[in-house]
Design a protein around this nucleic acid. Structure first.
Lengths: 219, 219
DNA sequence: TAGGCTTTGTCAGTTTTCTGTCAGACTAAC
DNA sequence: GTTAGTCTGACAGAAAACTGACAAAGCCTA
């Protein structure tokens, strides 16, 4: 895991850097918000550990700016402050987690693992709804542990529906997703695909709301 | 945001449920791991608040099992324990965040927002009046936790009425909203829709004020 | 390259569901 | 009791969705 550590306290910074290295992570340690910004522009990071107080800027302002610029990397804030109102400011400013000094290194690592895991989960992102399971990487689908063969388009459509997590998804959305608008197809193409999907998954898995769209039901 | 609250302490549970409702979230409160599992099988949630100690199972085991089964919903664990080793166990068991009792409600909300944001869950603007709940996002309606199927137009009309928050809303307003004036329909079209809505929601939910309009009553 | 198999969009016919209209009943207010 | 407004069951037209058949296209194998 590649971590950007933004901490101006030389002692804490050094020991954190050492500990992170020891933990098997790659760590870039910067001491100012300006350097942090530079680092973000230049490299890719999985995680940011951000001190609340920095010499050139409040960490929280740096964070807010970064979020505005579209940085979505998980951020764990460090601070000596324990006041709840400030924790809230931090979390609402875009932090994903929050730790008050002094803290236990092991807890820090556990929180980092938790933050990092989420990213991995998203990356591998097996989709599960009830007994239905879809693995985009492997291009596999199973229903109640039983494998089901789907064609390419059927798979795409089911994936899109499962990604929307129980929300109805319209035919035009599915069309856009499955055909990229390149191919002009009739709306009936989607209907046909849904019909074929139902034949394979059994009825009851995909429900229709007239005029709205389709969704995958928990079965 | 739809939240599953797993907490056996009746006092804490009740006050959390109230607070979450007040915050605009939909909250399903269960007291045992078994019920939590059931709830997960049946409904979709954006977030889980999980107590460490449950009557039938340790919350952490429940969580580990759920993660194994592919549940990726963010989880915030609640506990009276402050020992770091247990925090670590919680986080490594699949929790996304951790809060020790007693905690500040505002901090809890901030952490929930942070978790929800991470998931890129749009803060779904749930409409709630008494036991009636409407989620425009999911196109779902429930009355006293029981789901109710509505057609597209019925849904639109109920939504408009619920948005006007206890004020009477006239037939012509509803007509404008539901038909965009494109379709010239008789006022009776709305009356028919109201009649159908009443059939589904039960009488007493929608009241009429002659010459003025309709409103949704707290039930 | 031919033949067989699968995939998939289209068509057409069918089915399902929705929904506006009508007519007659009902109701509250005067 | 009258009247205007509202309610609701029945109905029918329309819209949306479903599905079997088919054919074009792609792919694999011999």
């Amino acid at each position: 895991m590649k971590i950007l550590l933004v901490e101006d306290d030389p002692q804490l910074g050094a020991s954190l850097e050492r500990a992170l290295h020891h933990d098997g992570s790659v760590c870039e340690w910067v001491k100012t918000a300006e350097d942090a910004e530079l680092a973000l522009d230049v490299s890719f990071f999985d995680l940011i550990i951000l001190d609340w107080m920095l010499p050139d800027q409040q960490g929280i302002y740096f964070l807010k700016e970064a979020r505005k610029r579209g940085v979505t990397i998980p951020v764990l804030m460090l601070t000596a402050r324990t006041a709840t109102s400030e924790k809230i400011e931090g979390l609402d400013g875009g932090a994903d987690d929050y730790l008050t000094k002094p803290f236990d290194l092991d807890e820090l690592f556990a929180r980092l693992r938790s933050l990092g895991r989420r990213r991995e989960v998203k990356a591998s992102s097996e989709l599960v709804i009830g007994g239905l399971r879809l693995c985009p990487d492997r291009h596999e689908v199973s229903l109640n542990e039983e494998e089901i063969q789907l064609s390419k388009t059927e798979f795409l459509i089911l994936q899109k529906m499962m990604e929307s997590q129980g929300r109805y998804i319209s035919k035009s959305q599915l069309e856009e997703y499955a055909y990229n608008w390149d191919n002009c197809v009739t709306p009936n193409a989607i209907e046909a695909q849904i019909s074929r999907l139902r034949k394979r998954l059994g009825s009851g898995v995909i429900t229709t709301l007239r005029g709205v769209g389709y969704k995958v039901e928990k079965v």
